[in-house]
């Protein structure tokens, strides 16, 4: 009996290992081409803006931009400081709200344009981050703000033409267009289609 049990156990072990070998989970492979990592503070509008940049970059350059979503600015800038992001999307209200935590102290102005210029200068000097062409949007608490892509100086070495591509979008974005785009869609696939249509209508792709 003991012998039979041992034999059964042996067969069972062999069968299990065979099953494991042939039914392993597929290995997901990332492209070995260059990938841009884009930081975004999670939110409906910011996801819509992020999708526009993803599609714009892919269609114009053939390069993949992967979004990385964060709960707040502080976490996003920590990731940027560690070199985990090539660029990020931010706005003046959000950046001001967490400027202390980020490590950049800037005086607030009632005009978003002045705040933008103050942030641009401070971020470039202290953090090696460059604010690109801004666009109007609604910031925290519904206040007027300027959104913009913010690129790491080091990323410019690998992607010197990236600012030119990112800056193409600024003049087509405003509070209304971003909110309309965000409201149009509830699914990821729907958002991608809406972003493609938005860019195509404006002859950006």
């Amino acid at each position: 009996m003991k012998k039979s049990f041992f034999f059964f156990f042996l067969v069972f072990a062999l069968a299990s290992s065979l099953l494991a070998a042939f039914s392993g989970v597929g290995v997901s492979q990332a492209c070995v081409g260059r990938i841009l990592r884009m930081g975004v503070v999670d939110g409906r509008s910011s996801r819509a803006v992020a999708e526009l940049y993803i599609v714009l970059i892919a269609e114009r350059t053939g390069t993949t931009a992967k979004p990385v979503f964060f709960k707040n600015d502080q976490l996003m800038y920590q990731a940027a400081a560690k070199g985990q992001l090539d660029f990020l999307i931010d706005d003046t209200e959000q950046a001001m709200a967490e400027a202390d935590a980020i490590g950049v102290r800037v005086g607030r102005s009632s005009a978003p344009e002045k705040t933008y210029l103050a942030l641009k200068g401070a971020f470039e000097q202290r953090l090696g981050l460059i604010w690109l062409a801004p666009f109007p949007m609604r910031g925290l608490n519904g206040r007027s703000a300027l959104g913009a892509p913010v690129i790491r100086q080091k990323a410019l070495q690998n992607f010197p033409a990236l600012p030119r591509v990112l800056n193409m979008l600024a003049r087509f974005l405003n509070t209304g267009s971003v909110e309309r785009l965000a409201a149009q869609t509830s699914s990821e696939a729907g958002l991608k289609r809406a972003a493609e249509n938005f860019l195509k209508e404006r002859r950006l792709i």
Binding site: S4, F7, F12
Partner: peptide, 22 residues
């Protein structure tokens, strides 16, 4: 028990249609 074990092993070693994932 021995026969049952051999039957299980035989089933697992029999070539299956190329399908599934892995």
């Amino acid at each position: 028990m021995k026969r049952a074990a051999l039957f299980i092993l035989l089933c697992l070693l029999t070539p299956r249609p190329a399908a599934g994932s892995g």
